[in-house]
Simulated assay, not measured.
Amino acid sequence: MKRRNVLTAIGTLSLGVGTALGMGAVDVVSSNSDGSFRVVSPGADVRIDPADSVGADVVKNGTIDFATLEPNDLPVATVSGNGGQMVTIQVAVTATQDHDFGDILKITNNSTDSTGYDVGFTYTGFGAAVDDGSIPKTDVVQAFQFTHGASTTKTVSSDWGDAQYDPMNYVSVEAGTSETVGLKVLQTDSIANFVSGSFTGDSENAVLIDEVTAVANQQ
């Protein structure tokens, strides 16, 4: 029987704005106060690491100091690994600009019995501003997208048109091979309006997503 291995990445994807970023208020999409969210390996045959070669605006094994960010530092993301067991990603982009960070994660199938896996990411927990309806869940799910492929890029994270927010597509990872996953941020009017109408003064954060679950379906 085919098995479905479920893993949970506890962390946050959130949005903040503040004058600490320079002259005037600059809207920033990031993840919570330290800008991080975590992707945990499903164990067994599949592991997740930082991509071998990351996008131009992604720094491997670094951190973002949100207290000293300047507008000309954006966009930026960092990715660091923990022996295939967990990957931590930090993200900072302006809230009014779409940005594709390119490759950021690597999924490796270490199966020794030719078992292939289809891997995807789904958002299963949301922040208060989303739960209370201030920002539509569908907009938040659409704003943060894990992607796969070059000429025909597809979203491999939550489908904003699906009631359960299951992955829109999956990454097929054959035994003994690896596949890379990118990260794209798309801005929506509801998020931009919420930020501009809510935050003043020093940097603050509003959690958008606080739980990410990756699933590996045996082929």
Results as ranks from 00 to 15, higher is better:
M1H: 08
R3W: 03
T8R: 08
A9K: 06
A9F: 09
I10E: 13
G11V: 10
G11W: 09
T12M: 00
L13D: 03
S14V: 00
G16E: 02
A20Q: 13
L21K: 02
G24Y: 07
A25S: 10
V26A: 06
V29T: 12
V29Y: 13
N32A: 14
N32C: 06
D34H: 12
G35T: 05
G35S: 03
R38G: 10
R38T: 12
V40D: 12
P42F: 04
D45S: 07
I48L: 04
D49W: 12
A51E: 04
D52E: 10
D52W: 03
A56D: 09
A56G: 02
V58S: 03
T63K: 01
I64W: 01
D65H: 05
F66M: 05
F66D: 00
T68N: 14
L69E: 04
L69W: 05
P71H: 07
N72P: 01
L74N: 07
G81H: 06
N82V: 08
M86N: 12
T88Y: 03
V93Y: 00
T94W: 03
D98P: 13
H99C: 04
F101E: 01
F101T: 09
G102L: 06
G102W: 06
N109P: 02
S111F: 05
T112I: 11
T112C: 05
V119K: 07
G120H: 09
G120R: 00
Y123E: 11
F126Y: 13
F126T: 01
F126C: 09
A128Y: 12
A129M: 13
S134M: 03
T138E: 15
D139G: 03
F144C: 09
F144Q: 09
H148V: 07
H148P: 05
G149Y: 01
T152G: 10
T153Q: 10
K154E: 15
T155M: 11
S157M: 08
S158N: 12
W160D: 14
D162K: 12
Q164E: 13
D166T: 13
M168C: 06
M168R: 06
N169E: 14
V173P: 00
E174W: 03
G176R: 05
L183D: 04
D189I: 10
A192T: 14
N193D: 15
F194I: 09
V195W: 00
S196D: 11
S196V: 06
S196N: 11
G197C: 12
G197F: 03
F199W: 00
T200R: 12
S203V: 12
V207Y: 13
E211L: 14
E211Y: 12
E211G: 10
V215H: 06
A216P: 04
